[in-house]
């Protein structure tokens, strides 16, 4: 849990789609075609697009559940997937299912049961650990779906609207868990109908256009002086820390913070809000450790989240629950 993101320059690319196409049936229309996508380690990728454009197909190919009709998928890291809907009518209790999935993911002996209990607790579902899956509410069922993906600390986490159905607290917890995976060098690919989900935290955003996939700057042409990082708007957290005298911040900090000098020899690091916990953990566990002086939320430089973030996401939500 303590490894930092691999330093820039040596990024592993555990998964790459090369000229991938997918159609259903030998004469069906192409759902996706000529898709190129590299999923480097330690990155958070978002895929956007209106409903019915093949986002879920895209995610299933990334997760290795679906094989492309054309092109190839290079590499297959240890993967976990959270489906859009998880109506788990299986003959297991919540903790029994998670323990079983932990073993499927490769956890040995009691580690699977421990991880199952820990993640249920983290999502506030420990009280339902021994409830049969078929009797769980929709929200708790979704917590189980999310927990099964996180408990084995996968190298690649694929989330298809995983936040839908979770309560407010669990959504925040999932945001932080995603940032942790990325900070630990894992890759996360996600789709969510809420345009503000993990705003500013994504390293890259891709948009399904027609049957293709294109890198997308969510700020679009509206602001010409936009930072290079896509989605730089959104809540950010400023951490003022003091390191060993004369030392620069460690390489590969979570969330690629903006570094600036601060008063009394301190250093100010600003990251998207979702990465702040992971950044604090990285600073506190660095060797030698950094001292945290203040944690503040500065006012967003561009004001509130602009409508540019909503491009491609009709405010109606397109019929999402």
């Amino acid at each position: 849990m303590r490894a930092l993101r691999p330093p820039p320059g040596v990024p592993g690319t555990p998964l790459a789609l090369e000229g991938v196409g997918r159609r259903y049936g030998s004469r069906g229309p192409w759902v996706l075609r000529d898709v190129e996508l590299a999923v480097p380690a330690g990155t958070l990728l978002r895929i956007v697009g209106t409903n019915g454009t093949g986002k879920s197909t895209q995610l299933r190919i990334v997760a290795g559940i679906d094989q492309p009709t054309a092109g190839r998928v290079r590499g297959r890291p240890r993967t976990a997937y959270v489906p859009e809907r998880f109506p788990a009518e299986l003959p297991f209790t919540a903790v029994g299912y998670l323990t079983h999935l932990g073993r499927v993911h490769g956890l040995r002996g009691r580690r699977a049961a421990h991880a199952a209990a820990r993640w249920l607790e983290r999502f506030g579902a420990a009280g339902h650990a021994h409830t049969p899956l078929a009797e769980l509410s929709k929200g708790t069922s979704q917590k189980v779906a999310v927990a099964q993906a996180l408990l084995a600390e996968p190298e690649l986490l694929v989330l298809d609207e995983a936040w839908t159905g979770l309560d407010q607290r669990a959504r925040g917890e999932l945001d932080r868990a995603v940032a942790e995976r990325v900070a630990d060098g894992g890759a996360v690919v996600f789709v969510d109908h809420d345009p503000r989900r993990l705003t500013g935290a994504a390293d890259a955003v891709y948009r399904v256009q027609g049957t293709g996939l294109a890198p997308w700057d969510p700020r679009g042409p509206l602001t010409t002086d936009a930072p290079a990082r896509p989605g730089a708007a959104g809540r950010r957290i400023r951490i003022e820390a003091v390191g060993p005298p004369g030392a620069a911040p460690p390489d590969g900090l979570p969330g690629a913070p903006e570094v600036a000098g601060a008063a009394d020899g301190g250093t100010a690091l600003t990251v998207p809000a979702a990465h702040s916990d992971a950044l604090l953990r990285a600073l506190l566990t660095a060797r030698p450790p950094w001292h945290i002086r203040t944690v503040t939320e500065p006012p967003a430089p561009d004001g509130p989240v602009g409508p540019a973030d909503c491009v491609g996401h009709p405010p109606s939500g397109g019929g999402h629950p």
């Binding site: 299933r60 290795g64 559940i65 788990a88 999935l101």
Partner: peptide
């Protein structure tokens, strides 16, 4: 859904 979750962890 259960099948896809297991397939991602191993293979279809």
């Amino acid at each position: 859904a259960a099948r896809q979750v297991a397939a991602a962890a191993t293979s279809p």
